[in-house]
Write a protein that binds this DNA or RNA. Structure first.
Lengths: 216, 216, 216, 216
DNA sequence: AATGAATGAGTGTTCATTCAT
DNA sequence: CATGAATGAACACTCATTCAT
């Protein structure tokens, strides 16, 4: 429902649009795997092609450059956690319930998709100018999705007196900690407990601690 | 006061220890500049040497590999924001005041050192095994510094009922947003305002909102 | 009338001979266009196929290799200026008039077909062994055509006392200057004037300057 | 004495200017050899490096791109035949003698350096924009050198009534035939004979056939 | 201790050609 | 007879690292 930003167009040598879609999905998936393991710069096109079950030459029929691959990965991974959140609020109509569900879903996504999230935060800067803008636009749309949920909850009467203008940013950033601090949290506090604490912290910070009671 | 972790030892060709220290400081500073601009992988040893006013050959008298340089940079930048915080609480003895001052200082450091922080979060994964462990240990010590401050404040009677075990992590992660979301915040909410909102949010999240009143 | 050299045979996948002829004409024409713009090596088979309105696969039904295309182009372009000259002397029977008309026509062809001529002189060396021999034989026949015209004029009484053995070569080479030195002549001396000067120079060099009077 | 055009500057990684000069001379010489044999596009950087007795990496310390090498070759070969001509007129002061000597020297250079000349005429179009302009400027200067010689001879009283404005171009183009038509002339008319005929033809074309008598 | 030239393995990318449908 | 996806060998160029002076 959120206005999805126009994705960057990647030119292909292949005419069969359905084939292009399918292959690119496979490439994005395989590349994500490779990049997670070795990092974008260390990974070679050869690695990606092999992981995707394609030859180098064939790979280049579907993308134009290594940057295209990185863009494909970003686009795909961002779409995934966005879908997680959208799916979580799909049936709900109560604004407060929608916000709570969204936060929960996002927090969970950050924990479950930690490797993907780390990849994004590490390699976004390696994107070319156009790819970067497209990805940031996509991320921006996601953050604004939360902005809308918060605004609706407030209009519905929820008392949000904390960080009025930063709220959407905070809510979409703090949970990233579960991915970027995993090296530390894994040892200290694992699993869903961390999720619960984070959700509570966020709601309290927003100024609506009472929501904790009926959370989850 | 916090137990500083043993730094990784970098072997040098040069005997004069003072010279080694001085040169490495210059290298770290120059490399940080170069890496911020071009990223670690894109930057070449030549770039770093030139920026440091050394020749390539000379550079290699003080470091053993490109990874050493990245480690030097991490070590240096991490030490800087750590020092910011330590300096902020230096004269203070009241546990609550110490915690508040530390949070403030850290938030400010994240905003002012945004380029350095972004560099750290983007390139840490490029570190070699040993360098990575050393840097994570350093970061861990910093987080534990906050853990200690929080614990002290609690013992002093501060009501911290939010995220007891995650508190130190949250406090040392959320402000990073000022650096990593700068592409967005710059347009929305610039300068010290964002700092204030963040501090308030953190304190509220910790469960001690009354602290806001006498903040700063 | 001159004995046209046996052209190199290009094997085709297609049985319909008329279709093969038609397609190859289109390919030669399209390829010439592409090669003039980008050069033979820089141009891709894809470029040629597109320019000819064929797919890559179809293209390969009419030629066997990229070299075949280059040969087709050479063969075609050489035939064109040869036809220009042959057409110019078609109705004439007076040997001296025939020679003069041939020279004029060739000079004009070099100026008008400058792009084609440049293409020939630049890319002939890229031809494979067999193609090269075939093209050189074709060119040789063209030069011998002039040799015959000169010989006939001499037998008719024209005083040709200059460069008796090189005459045909000179006459068929000097005008090429209008194509290969176009980068310079365009600025200095454009259009038909250059043609006139060249013709006069050639006749004077051949030792029959009196021919200038009734030229054109 | 002629105003040499400013050559294109090629950036080097090496500081020792004398070394750069020496190496580049070797590279130009070796590359010319390789390009003559295989052509510019077919020759690889590896071929050139090997022929120059350098490793690939070292080669790139003295040039920036393959285009640089081609430029180096052009610049070198053009300078060679230019030097041939300049050397031939060095001691002479009589304008007519100077012109005659220059023509003779150029004709001889074209025959002796036929392989280099063919290389130039085949590969000039492969030069990049800047390189091309630099080379054309160099060639233009050479042609203007002849323009000056012709003008001086005319002022001295030599009757030049043929192709006044094209004279310099013709004189510097026709002899190229000895290189570009070598595939034909070798069989028909070899050695110095062809040279003599060409010189005679040129002088006759210029309208001063009496010069033939005291030629050579 | 400083210099800077040499090295060579490695990388992204291209493209002529083939062939199953 | 047409199509267009697949192939893989090849190539220009980079750069961290070494080492003789």
């Amino acid at each position: 429902m959120s206005t999805a930003p126009a994705p960057r167009v990647i030119a292909a040598q292949i005419k069969d649009e359905a084939l292009v879609q399918a292959r690119r999905a496979r490439i994005a998936e395989a590349a994500a795997r490779v990049f997670r393991e070795k990092g974008f710069h260390t990974a070679t096109i050869r690695d990606v092609a092999e992981a995707a079950g394609l030859t180098q030459g064939t790979l280049y029929n579907y993308i134009r450059s290594k940057d295209d691959i990185l863009y494909l990965v970003h686009q795909d991974l961002t779409a995934r956690y966005t879908a997680d959140v959208e799916r979580a609020i799909e049936g709900l109509s109560d604004p407060r319930a929608r916000l709570r569900a969204a936060i929960r879903a996002f927090v969970r996504a950050m924990r479950e998709r930690h490797a993907d999230i780390r990849l994004i935060y590490q390699e976004t800067h390696a994107l070319g100018r156009d790819s970067l803008h497209a990805v940031l636009a996509q991320t921006d749309a996601f953050i604004r999705l939360f902005g809308g949920l918060i605004e609706a909850a407030r209009r519905d009467g929820m008392a949000i007196d904390g960080a009025p203008r930063l709220a959407a940013d905070i809510v979409t950033f703090l949970p990233v900690m579960l991915a970027l601090r995993r090296w530390r949290l894994r040892h200290a506090l694992d699993g869903p407990e961390a999720e619960d604490e984070l959700v509570a912290f966020l709601l309290r910070g927003l100024g609506c601690p009472e929501e904790i009671a009926d959370g989850s």
